[in-house]
Design a protein around this nucleic acid. Structure first.
Ligand SMILES: [Zn+2]
Length: 221
DNA sequence: AGTGCCGGGCC
DNA sequence: GGCCCGGCACT
């Protein structure tokens, strides 16, 4: 009797869904008293930049071939764990991520967000930027000089780069989740996206991809 | 608890 | 193609 797929026009969308009972998270983690409290670099600051350029600090991944930079400590650690070290095991408590990034300063961290029209929806394995990242990490150890100032990477599809003893330290092999042929999931970038910026009650201000629950094209670079 | 988004549905 | 949501990986 009632129309099949007609939605009310523009009411706020308070649609709280019931939570799933099958999601469990382990709560076994160390308190981590001092989070990277041992690096005491950049104490001296010899860079003599008066007050014209805003030199900000970035965290740069030092994994070979990767030059991924972020601006927060937690995001670079997340990057390293996701893209290089692999999933964390439960029962491991050393902060190994600390050894794969440095903190440095930059003068002009190209903040202008790309104004190009990258407003297309595209699966990640077709994204040329994304493919470059994949190859870069896949050849970890085969290439020597490779600069890369881009952003995101993903967990590997099905290859086992960190099982080939190319990593500077241990190897974290495990049954990586992912069916053969699955391109993997891109790690969340640290920028705030339309949803968080505008909120659920202003959904009409979101970019198109955010409205469709796709990868945001306005706030990621 | 909330956010980001892939995969897949419907039109 | 546009549009939307279930489910899930994260935080
Ligand atoms: Zn967006």
């Amino acid at each position: 009797m009632l129309p099949p797929y007609t939605r009310p026009l523009a009411p706020p969308r308070p649609r709280p869904r019931p939570p799933r009972p099958d999601l469990v998270t382990n709560a076994l983690d160390v308190a981590a008293v001092s989070k990277r409290g041992t690096i005491a670099f950049r104490a001296r600051n010899p860079i003599c930049v008066p007050d014209t350029a805003i030199n900000s600090v970035v965290f740069e991944c030092t994994w070979r071939g990767c030059g991924h930079t972020t601006n927060s400590c937690s995001s670079i650690e997340a990057h390293i764990r996701n893209t290089h070290l692999g999933p964390k095991k439960e029962g491991e408590s050393d902060h190994e991520e600390e050894f794969y990034y440095t903190e440095r300063e930059v003068l002009a961290p190209p903040p202008p967000p790309t104004l190009s029209h990258r407003d297309m929806c595209r699966p990640p394995h077709e994204d040329p930027d994304y493919q470059r990242q994949l190859v870069g990490s896949y050849r970890q150890g085969l290439l020597s000089t490779m600069h890369n100032g881009s952003a995101r990477l993903i967990s590997f599809p099905v290859g086992h780069p960190w099982s080939s003893s190319h990593s500077p330290k241990h190897m974290r092999l495990s049954g990586m989740t992912g069916s053969p042929g699955s391109p993997g999931r891109r790690p969340r970038s640290d920028n705030k996206k339309c949803r968080k910026v505008y909120g659920m009650d202003q959904r009409d201000l979101w970019c198109t991809q955010c409205k469709w629950k796709k990868a945001c094209t306005r706030f990621n670079e």
